[in-house]
Design a protein around this nucleic acid. Structure first.
Lengths: 247, 247
DNA sequence: ATAATAGTGTCTGTAAGACATTATATA
DNA sequence: TATATAATGTCTTACAGACACTATTAT
């Protein structure tokens, strides 16, 4: 027990790692950063980036460090949160490894440099990533991360973490559409996010696109939570109805 | 890294425990199960129940086992979910201990038996528990657990886990009032929960109270999520307004 | 009758969904 | 001009908050 801990024994000892589900939007698609394993087990298979937690660092610090090693970004610009911990005794065939999974959302992240262990790292559309067999229990982790990300968009302002500043309301709407996988009404979406307090900070600038009226540019506001939430339920019902009508 | 793990080294090794925030409603108050530590460090201080994860069990199994050891209940009747993982390198002064915290919600749990390590276990109102200094980082854990529980009541049917079956709508409303800490309109609450699909399963029975009209009895329905959610925001705003008016 | 809680009904304000209309750019 | 996207406005529906009113028990 935490309370007694008379003697340090093998019981309860495990290696601690952090694994990162790093999501970004590239080419109008939601993509996740995956590495190709260079060593057994699961050699040659895709896996989430991650690594050991060092003796001197907190779990959050370990996640930030791994994030920096993989994407050369510091955590100040993006959304990073603990997702869940996975500790099945046989999730790693070699020894017991308990991994704390983190979810990171970032804007237009760069093509990753070659990993420190000469592992190829690259972006993969999450749709593909979900159908592939990943190493360890990483398929489960990425599936739960995607659901968390979708849910975060409902109740928080996390969607703005996907947008490089400054951004338009159209950019922000595209984030929702790509992550949720169905279209939103542009008019109602605008009304919703502009009325939410401190979600968007207006600028006086505009962006001239290839075509169409120039769009006003915004920056991220101070709000973390979205009140009231922007729920998928109604829109999803409509999308399902549409999908049913097409069958 | 999880991916390489060339050599088993000290780096990343830690003891793994589970800690439980077990909440129930007793005497119209939200209470948490705490143990009094019989050994240093933090001897004599209050702490969350918990213990080592065994080599052969999953994290969820460890939480269920500890729950059974502390309350003599199996997990089938109550709500149990992983809360968060705490791994500050100095959270335990003796060695590195990473703990996976769980949140358990149960109906009218019994007075706990003496702990296996002769530790006194007992129920404490969460309000008091929050003001006391608990062992380790358990004050943080219980604070985050309370916020999670309050949030769960908004988006899920978890409130019913606090009610011994069968229960009345008044019982269920009292759960919300006790956990959230402010009163709800009985009429609107009834409309909300009865219209939510598969939240409540009606029975043909009624309960005759000391006074007042007998109340219809319900059992928990199959729904896990509450659509649309029952948000604190509006009600909280009213409560704050009321509190402000009283000052 | 009175008190107390259960349960129903109604009015109002807010916000979401659907969709029409106007504004401003490029080709 | 046509086309595309931005931005505003309008109508309707769903639902929450407030609260009046009825129902059914015990004292």
């Amino acid at each position: 027990m935490t309370q007694t801990l008379h003697t340090p024994r093998a019981t309860g000892q495990a290696a601690i790692t952090v694994d990162l589900v790093i999501l970004t939007i590239r080419g109008g698609e939601l993509q996740a950063l995956l590495i190709e394993r260079g060593n057994p087990p699961y050699r040659g298979q895709l896996a989430l980036p991650g690594g050991f937690v060092r003796d001197s660092e907190t779990l959050d610090q370990a996640a930030l460090r791994e994030l920096h090693e993989e994407t050369a970004l510091d955590g100040r610009q993006l959304h990073l949160e603990q997702l869940r911990t996975y500790g099945d005794p046989h999730r790693d065939p070699r020894q017991r490894v308990v991994t704390v999974a983190y979810l990171a959302l970032g804007p237009n992240l760069p093509v990753p440099t070659a990993g420190t262990d000469a592992q190829a790292a690259g972006w993969h559309p999450v749709g593909q990533a979900l159908t592939r067999v990943l190493a360890f229990d990483h398929s489960t982790i990425i599936r739960e991360a995607l659901e968390r990300a979708r849910s975060q968009l409902e109740y928080t302002t996390a969607a703005a973490a996907f947008c490089p500043e400054p951004f338009t309301i159209g950019d922000l709407r595209q984030v929702y559409e790509v992550v949720w996988g169905f279209p939103l009404d542009p008019s109602n979406f605008r009304r919703k996010v502009t009325r939410a307090e401190h979600f968007l900070r207006p600028t006086s600038e505009h962006r001239v696109a290839e075509t169409g009226r120039p769009a006003a540019l915004y920056r991220r506001g101070s709000a973390q939570l979205l009140h009231p939430p922007l729920l998928r339920a109604g829109a999803r019902a409509r999308a399902q109805f549409t999908a049913a009508a097409l069958r």
